[in-house]
């Protein structure tokens, strides 16, 4: 089953390199986001681009990963529509292998996106202010969160009729989660009602953890990075607890 999943993960990585749209999602898109936010809004938001890159880069990583983790539903839906799943189903492999293959493939995509963003960030002046193993924990944490979140997308992908519908629904979920957080601005600058949402939004905690782990600071007063990380782990447990069972149920029904 592990070998089959790895073979299918390889398929999904090869496909990504062949599909310019998905490859741009994890390479060019984070770079463009960084350029736009740091150089255009940086001066206005943080006073200088140098100060803003320290603030915004962890958020940009999280946002990129959020979008990437929701493409799994689109991809699975397309695979089913195109009939390639019928091929898999007629082969003597574990029924779960195509699903786990897709998740493993996504981890590769996430790693590419994180590496690209961190390297580009470093080039334009982002300074790591923590030991290397903090950075390693940060990467592990964001990938864990992405893998927990992807079950939402798997569920939508199994229930929606077309890949386009999956995409639309996924964006509806991603937008409030990413923009209704402290991705681009400190939570304290937001209106009070929005601060309420930002405080309970798990993405805020992911971003604050990333900030703490990469730059040693948090923008929400009174919370330690360790506290933020525990929040993230708790939300991963909730996401998996709530979405993994119905997602795999819907998947088993399709396959």
């Amino acid at each position: 089953m592990l070998r089959d999943s790895l073979i299918l993960a390889r398929r999904s990585v090869v496909k990504m390199t062949r599909n310019p749209e998905q490859f741009i999602d994890v390479t060019l898109q984070p770079i463009i986001l960084t350029v736009v936010f740091v150089f255009i809004f940086g001066g206005a938001i943080a006073g200088s681009t140098g100060a803003y890159v320290e603030f915004a880069l962890p958020g940009i990583i999280v946002q990129t990963i959020m979008f990437t983790s929701l493409t799994i539903g689109v991809n699975l839906n397309t695979d089913i529509q195109k009939g390639i799943f019928d091929r898999f189903r007629s082969l003597p492999i574990a029924r779960s292998a195509p699903l786990f293959g897709a998740v493993l493939g996504d981890i590769v995509r996430h790693s590419i996106a994180i590496t690209v963003t961190l390297v580009f960030g470093a080039i334009i002046g982002f300074q790591f202010q923590t030991p290397w193993w903090h950075v390693a924990i940060a990467i592990l944490l964001i990938i864990t969160f992405a893998v927990s979140l992807c079950w939402v997308s798997v569920l939508i992908g199994m229930l929606a009729r077309s890949a386009g519908a999956v995409q639309g629904l996924s964006f509806l979920i991603v937008f409030p989660l990413t923009f209704g957080s402290s991705t681009f601005v400190p939570a304290s600058t937001l209106p009070t009602w929005l601060q309420g949402w930002v405080a309970i939004n798990p993405v805020t905690h992911v971003i604050e953890s990333m900030r703490g782990l990469l730059t040693g600071s948090t923008s929400v007063a009174g919370d330690t990075t360790t506290g933020q990380i525990l929040w993230v782990i708790a939300s991963c447990v909730v996401l998996v607890g709530v979405f993994f069972p119905p997602a795999t149920w819907a998947y088993r029904r399709k396959i």
Binding site: R11, V14, K15, R18, N19, K82, G83, I84, F85, D86, R87
Partner: peptide, 11 residues
């Protein structure tokens, strides 16, 4: 072999 060729178009 099904009615619709089940091959991966991106491979």
């Amino acid at each position: 072999t099904g009615q619709f060729a089940s091959v991966d178009e991106d491979l």
